[in-house]
Amino acid sequence: MSPITLSLEYTLAAISVAGLPALFVVFVLKGALVGKIFPTSVFLSGYVVLTAPTHVGAATIVVLVTVAHVIGQFAVYTGSRRYGEEIVSAVPYLNFDPSSDRFRRVGQWFDRYGDVAVFGTNVLPWSRGLIAIPAGVSSYPRRRYLVHVGASTLLYHTVYVALPLLGLAAVA
């Protein structure tokens, strides 16, 4: 057996043992804005390519990462509801200033569009999660927040799992 084949087998074995729990942790951190330091969409798509799950397995992955991401975002929402915009300074690896133009724009989107902003910003890769802060500060209803974030995150992760599966099916 060649060293490349052996290392690939070890990698696949490690992924099969630690894969789903590791995905859960990574996506909780991503939802909590801590995971912004690495591209989880690439990580998720790579995991799908390496494991080539069945349809049930793919659905399990989508649900798992969605729940994890929503838990992380809800932590930011709850923290900003309790502590205000200052919660941003407590999040490690997040270089984001509450007085910046970007933060003000997110707040303006939320003030202007409400539900649509909560849903929409969770479908766009570069704005995901930031809406949790103005939503929490404004005491936006918890249930509505969870419904909009959950639905948009489910849609987002479904795409990131479906695309590599479609690619694998096209190659096969």
Rank of each mutant, 00 (worst) to 15 (best):
L8Q: 15
L20A: 09
A22S: 05
V28C: 01
L29P: 01
L29G: 03
L29T: 02
A32V: 00
L33T: 03
K36Q: 13
K36T: 13
F43Q: 03
L44G: 01
S45R: 06
Y47G: 00
V48I: 01
L50R: 12
A52G: 07
T54S: 14
H55D: 15
V56K: 13
G57I: 00
T66C: 05
I71D: 05
I71N: 12
I71Q: 10
F74Y: 12
Y77V: 00
G79F: 07
E85C: 12
E86L: 07
V88H: 13
V91S: 08
L94H: 10
N95Q: 12
D97R: 09
S100G: 03
D101T: 15
V106C: 02
Q108T: 07
F110N: 04
R112S: 07
Y113W: 15
Y113T: 04
Y113M: 08
T121L: 13
I131M: 12
A132Q: 12
A132L: 09
I133F: 12
S138L: 04
Y140R: 06
V147C: 08
V149F: 09
T153W: 13
T153P: 01
T153V: 01
Y156H: 03
H157M: 12
V161M: 11
L166W: 13
G167F: 11
L168Y: 15
A170D: 07
